[in-house]
Design a protein around this nucleic acid. Structure first.
Lengths: 218, 218
DNA sequence: GTCAATCGTTTTGTATACAAGATAAGAAAT
DNA sequence: ATTTCTTATCTTGTATACAAAACGATTGAC
C-alpha cells in the first residue's frame, strides 16, 4: 500500500482484533495507541482507515474508531456469500484448471490427509488454505480470486475454530476429495456444488456453535 | 465514515476518475490537489486511502497515488463476478421477497418501460438502479446486499454506456420482466439464471465495444 | 560520446501544533 | 430533587513544519 509504518500498525491491530483482544464496540484510543506503538497519531489514523476498509473497525465522524466484530447473523451472511464465491471459483476452475494445478491440489490434499491422521489442526489448516487458494487462482479470474481471498482472510479466525469440532477434519477431507474429482472430470456444476456445500457447512457448524453457546449461557 | 472534508473530497475525486478526467496510471499530485480543493495535504491523503480501498487508485509507498482504471480484461472479470452476485441475490430473494417489494419492482419496471418508449436513457438508468437495489435488499442477506451494491457502484460508469447500444434498453426491459416473473413464482433457480444472464450480457456487450474500439484504432 | 555518480530539488511520510466539535460534569432554576 | 443550561475538558479533524527518500539533472570520468 503506502508507507511502512501505518501498514505494519494496521496489521498488528488486525491481529489484535482477530485475537479477540477488543470487543465489539470498543473504541480505539488514538493517543493511547500512538504512545503504545511509539508513533504519532497520523500513521495510526491511516491504519484506522485501512481497517475500516476491510470492515474491522467503523469510523464514526467526530467520535473515533470503533471495533466492529461481526455478530452471529452477520457471520452467517458472510459464510453464505463465501460459499457462493467459492462455488463460482470452482465452476470456472473446472473448465480452466491446468494439470500442474491439479497436481498441486492432490499434493495439498495428501498433506491434509496426513494432518488428519495425527490430528494436527494447524497443519491441516495451512494445507487447507493452500488447497483453496489454488482453486481461486485457477478460476482464471483475477478479480474473483482477490475478492474471494479477501473474504477468506476475514473469515479466517472463525473458520479455524471449526476444525476443532469432533470429526470435522475427516469430513472436510472427504469433501476435498469430491471437489478434486469434479475438477478432474471438468464437471463445472459438480465442482461448484461441492465447494458450495463444503463452505456452507462451515456456516452451519458455526451456527450450531453459536446456538450451543447461547443455550449454555441461559 | 469519518470526517466531512476528506469524505467529500473522496467523492469528488471519485467522480473525476469515473468521468475519465484521469487516465490509467496518472499520478494524483497531493499539493496541486490540496491547493485546488483549498485544504491541506492531510485530508487529501485520507481521501486517497478511501479511493484505494475501493480500488480506484493504487497507493505506492514513497511514490504517490496513481489512478487505476480497469482495463478490458479486468472489467470482464468484474462483470463476471457481478453476474454471480446478482444471481445469488435473485436466488435468495425468490424465497424471501415480500409482496410490498414485488409491487416496488413492478413499479420500477413500469417506469423503465415508460423510459424506453421515450428513449430516455437517464430515466431508464435511474429506475433500473432502483430495480436492482430492491433485489439486493430482498436477498435478506445484508452483507451480500452491501458487497453487491459496492461492485454495482464501481461498474456504474461502464454499465451506463451499455444503454446507448441500439435496442439494449428494450432487451434489458424484457429481461427485467422475466426476472420479476421468476421472483413472483418463487422460482429460485430461474430468478438466479435470469439475473446472471441479464448481467453477463452487459459484460459481453462491453467486450464487443472494446473489440470494435480496438479494430477502429488499427 | 556515453555512462555513472553525486548533488539538488521535489515529494512523500511523520510529528506537532492548533481549531472545532463532542462529551461530561457542575451549577442554577423550576 | 430533577432537569436543563453552561462551561470545561477531552478528542477528533486540519494545518503546518520537519525529515527522509526518490527523482532528475549536471558534472566528471572512462
Amino acid at each position: 500500500m503506502e508507507q511502512r509504518r501505518a501498514d505494519s500498525i494496521a496489521e498488528e491491530l488486525e491481529e489484535l482484533i482477530f485475537a479477540g483482544t477488543y470487543r465489539d464496540g470498543d473504541r480505539l484510543d488514538e493517543m493511547r495507541l500512538a504512545e503504545q506503538f511509539g508513533v504519532s497519531r497520523t500513521p495510526l489514523r491511516e491504519a484506522f482507515q485501512r481497517l475500516a476498509l476491510s470492515g474491522l473497525v467503523e469510523l464514526i465522524p467526530r467520535r473515533g474508531a470503533f471495533v466492529r466484530q461481526p455478530g452471529p447473523v452477520e457471520l452467517m451472511e458472510m459464510f453464505e456469500v463465501m460459499a457462493e464465491l467459492e462455488a463460482t471459483c470452482g465452476r470456472l476452475a473446472a473448465m480452466r484448471i491446468s494439470d500442474a494445478a491439479l497436481d498441486e491440489l492432490r499434493s495439498a490434499n495428501a498433506n491434509c490427509k496426513a494432518a488428519v491422521e495425527v490430528q494436527d489442526c494447524d497443519a491441516y489448516y495451512t494445507e487447507n488454505e493452500r488447497f483453496h487458494r489454488i482453486i481461486y487462482q485457477q478460476s482464471g479470474n483475477r478479480f474473483l480470486e482477490q475478492e474471494t481471498a479477501k473474504l477468506h482472510k476475514r473469515l479466517k479466525p472463525f473458520r479455524r475454530q471449526q476444525l476443532r469440532f469432533r470429526g470435522r477434519m475427516a469430513q472436510s477431507m472427504a469433501e476435498h476429495e469430491a471437489i478434486v474429482d469434479a475438477l478432474v472430470q471438468g464437471d463445472a456444476a459438480g465442482a461448484g456444488e461441492a465447494l458450495r456445500a463444503h463452505v456452507a457447512v462451515q456456516g452451519e457448524k458455526f451456527h450450531n456453535l453459536m446456538a450451543s453457546l447461547q443455550s449454555a449461557a441461559e
